[in-house]
Simulated assay, not measured.
Amino acid sequence: MNITYDVIPDDKIEICSDLCNELMKFQKSKALIKPELFDSMKFETWMVPSIKNAIHNYTVIAKDGDKQVGYVYSNISRKETYSNDFATFFDLSSVRGSYVGCLSNFYIKDEYRQYGIGSRLFNMSIDWLQQFEYVEDYFIFVSNGNTNALEFYKRKGFSVSHDILDGFITVLRKHKKDFH
């Protein structure tokens, strides 16, 4: 195994479309609440609009040779971006500044889990998010049924804040002051 990590510029984001679509299928397979909501979630309807609405984007693809094995997508967005037709993801008044940092998409192919790739992608993403001094609140949204992801983020210091859409998504949060 020879894992490399490539940062993908926004204008080349279609490179990770297959991984994003795999993530949505994976989430649907795990979902216990409203799995049908994933039917309309795919690269073109989920990730592309997120990239267009964000102020800053950061996407990293993990590869084993030429094979894409995982990715992470994070962004800095105005907090109002997270109150839309789909849902209100958090109480906007609880966010200290005008912007939030979100680890938005994160996926590793099953056969590549447990090799530290997830921790590496997570750390790269968090390091990137923390460089924006004006951002004080960080969020991660975990789909229902994905208990492995939920536990992973808790081990990384994020706390469950609340659920939205009747438990369809669990919102995790961490404040800048809580990072070491």
Rank of each mutant, 00 (worst) to 15 (best):
residue 8 I to K: 04
residue 91 D to G: 04
residue 85 D to T: 09
residue 126 I to S: 05
residue 150 L to C: 02
residue 123 N to I: 09
residue 1 M to L: 14
residue 146 N to F: 02
residue 163 D to H: 12
residue 6 D to A: 13
residue 112 Y to C: 02
residue 69 V to S: 01
residue 43 F to T: 02
residue 77 S to V: 08
residue 63 K to E: 00
residue 107 Y to K: 10
residue 151 E to H: 11
residue 37 L to V: 10
residue 105 N to C: 13
residue 36 E to W: 03
residue 178 D to T: 00
residue 36 E to H: 07
residue 12 K to T: 04
residue 6 D to T: 14
residue 29 S to N: 15
residue 36 E to K: 08
residue 63 K to D: 00
residue 61 I to T: 01
residue 125 S to H: 09
residue 99 Y to N: 07
residue 7 V to P: 00
residue 171 V to D: 04
residue 97 G to H: 11
residue 57 N to H: 06
residue 27 Q to W: 01
residue 89 F to I: 05
residue 63 K to N: 09
residue 60 V to E: 06
residue 16 C to P: 02
residue 58 Y to Q: 00
residue 146 N to W: 01
residue 54 A to N: 10
residue 97 G to A: 08
residue 96 R to P: 01
residue 89 F to M: 11
residue 142 V to N: 05
residue 142 V to G: 06
residue 110 D to Y: 12
residue 5 Y to P: 01
residue 5 Y to D: 04
residue 4 T to S: 02
residue 172 L to K: 10
residue 121 L to D: 02
residue 119 S to W: 04
residue 43 F to Y: 15
residue 154 K to W: 03
residue 67 K to N: 07
residue 111 E to Y: 13
residue 29 S to Y: 03
residue 20 C to D: 11
residue 7 V to L: 10
residue 68 Q to P: 06
residue 132 F to R: 04
residue 42 K to L: 11
residue 13 I to K: 08
residue 166 D to R: 14
residue 34 K to D: 14
residue 137 D to K: 11
residue 5 Y to S: 05
residue 156 K to S: 02
residue 99 Y to C: 05
residue 147 T to M: 10
residue 178 D to L: 04
residue 158 F to W: 13
residue 170 T to Q: 12
residue 74 S to M: 03
residue 81 T to G: 01
residue 179 F to H: 07
residue 156 K to F: 01
residue 147 T to P: 01
residue 68 Q to H: 13
residue 75 N to V: 08
residue 81 T to W: 04
residue 35 P to Q: 12
residue 117 I to G: 09
residue 16 C to A: 11
residue 14 E to F: 11
residue 144 N to R: 06
residue 155 R to Q: 15
residue 171 V to R: 02
residue 85 D to M: 09
residue 55 I to P: 03
residue 18 D to N: 13
residue 104 S to T: 15
residue 11 D to A: 03
residue 117 I to D: 02
residue 93 S to C: 04
residue 131 Q to V: 02
residue 50 S to V: 06
residue 128 W to C: 07
residue 56 H to R: 10
residue 54 A to C: 12
residue 151 E to T: 09
residue 154 K to C: 11
